[in-house]
């Protein structure tokens, strides 16, 4: 199940765990990333909490936790090479895996068609 947020994150949900990243649109808007800071495994966040930070040459931006949950895995490859987020944002450039507190929370998120409508 693939879901999207208004903050331009995608979630691929499998067995109560969401793999989370930023969308192609978000990566284009941010420009070339030079630094990524990921949360610690085991950290818990509420929906909207500052889970990660991305920095371009120009500015820092927060990546919000899309739903309540616990971080169970992070993608160290993007801290070593932030450009992965630009080159493959919805694949190898994923950020973290989130064990959802309530899987049904995902029902309130957008599907791909709704998100595409949002970003035009």
């Amino acid at each position: 199940m693939l879901k999207f947020t208004e903050e331009h994150e995608w979630l691929k949900i499998e067995g109560g765990v969401a793999t989370v990243g930023i969308t192609v649109h978000a990566a284009e808007q941010l420009g070339d990333l030079v630094f990524v800071e990921l949360p610690e495994v085991g950290a818990t966040f509420e929906k909207g909490g500052d889970a990660a930070t991305v920095e371009s040459v120009k500015a820092a931006s927060d990546v919000y936790c899309p739903l309540d949950g616990e971080i169970v895995e992070v993608n160290e490859a993007i801290t070593a090479d932030p450009s992965l987020v630009n080159s493959d944002p919805q694949g190898a450039g994923w950020f973290f895996k989130l064990k959802l507190a309530n899987v049904s929370d995902a029902d309130g998120l957008m599907d791909e068609a709704a998100y595409k409508e949002l970003v035009g």
Partner: peptide, 9 residues
């Protein structure tokens, strides 16, 4: 603020 090449390039 930038053109199509982007700030880095």
């Amino acid at each position: 603020v930038q053109y199509t090449a982007g700030v880095m390039k």
